[in-house]
């Protein structure tokens, strides 16, 4: 289908952007990579009055390593994340996730911020952000605020972003000593949205797990940290018993979700399987 009519504007600065967002409020949508938004427009699933194209604001893109932190600008393309040596070194979880994100042409345009703000329940980057305990800096005409990832993703396509606001950066802590990351995703075909997946970040030191963040996605609404499963492995080594113990309580952590592609029971089962695989993958990583 052809997109419905809308007005388009390309601000040259953040200031202009905030003015426009303030002026048009809910009538405006932000155009970053466009890989989700333009598809929705083409299907007439969305009919905004105004599109605010932020692609011209250079300061919004970039990966910056400073101290123990990695800051990812909202306009950083998936492709940049995929090929960045800094990401591979300091945020290996994201490096592991990127090949699963759609296909090369989509990664060339798609943006980090777009993925976070769109918050598709089966997307990889929101789950990685959750597992890594990222913080998002959100700007608007009235200033900036910081929101932790666990407070940012609220539900199905629902985030803490309010009308007039723009996601600016994601702040991540570089992977620390003794920590490993692992990523597992199940999709029907390469590049499809996940049936279910898990982004995992944990310490494995002295032969035991600790401080595990197991972020499941494809489970219905927002990505979910499996707290009970994390508790079940804390202080324990990788073993069949540890895996089973974690799998047994995983059900408590995940919402029941059923859709066209899998029933609730299937998803629960697949989540358990991926949990086992990601726990094994964690210990196979070198920290």
């Amino acid at each position: 289908m052809k997109a419905p009519a809308f007005a388009y504007v390309r601000p040259r600065s953040l200031g202009e952007t905030f003015e426009l967002l303030d002026q048009y409020g809910e009538d405006a949508k932000i155009l970053a990579g466009g890989q989700s938004l333009i598809a929705a427009l083409n299907m007439r699933l969305s009919a905004p009055r105004v599109l605010v194209d932020i692609n011209g604001i250079a300061e919004l893109a970039g990966i910056r390593v400073a101290g123990d932190g990695v800051r990812i600008g909202v306009l950083t393309r998936h492709r940049a994340l995929e090929h960045s040596p800094e990401i591979a070194r300091y945020l290996p979880l994201i490096h592991q996730a990127m090949p699963h994100v759609a296909h090369a042409p989509i990664r060339n345009r798609g943006s980090f911020g777009g993925s976070i703000a769109f918050a598709d329940p089966a997307a990889e980057l929101p789950a990685c952000s959750l597992a890594l305990g990222a913080e998002f800096v959100i700007g608007s005409k009235s200033g900036e605020r910081r929101v932790a990832a666990r407070d940012f993703f609220k539900g199905l396509y629902e985030t803490d972003l309010r009308p007039g606001e723009l996601l600016l950066v994601g702040d991540f802590a570089a992977i620390g000593a003794g920590y490993r990351s692992a990523f597992q995703e199940l999709a029907r075909r390469h590049g499809d949205y996940a049936l279910v997946g898990v982004a995992a970040h944990a310490k494995y030191e002295g032969g035991v797990y600790s401080d595990a963040a197991l972020a499941f996605f494809g489970v219905g609404g927002a990505p979910v940290l499996a707290q009970s499963a994390a508790a079940a492995i804390a202080g324990r080594p990788f073993s069949d018993e540890t895996v089973v113990a974690a799998q047994r309580v995983l059900e408590q952590d995940l919402p029941t979700h059923e859709d066209l592609h899998a029933s609730a029971g299937t998803r629960r089962h697949l989540a358990r399987v991926l949990l086992g695989r990601v726990l094994r993958q964690l210990v196979q990583q070198r920290s």
Binding site: G34, I38, A39, N108, R109
Partner: peptide, 24 residues
């Protein structure tokens, strides 16, 4: 398809391949 899945619309913009249907 015009939803970015089939790849028939792939063109080069600034030297990179993109989905031409997902770019204005």
């Amino acid at each position: 398809c015009e939803h970015g899945v089939c790849g028939a619309c792939t063109v080069r913009v600034n030297g990179e391949i993109v989905r031409g249907c997902l770019m204005l």
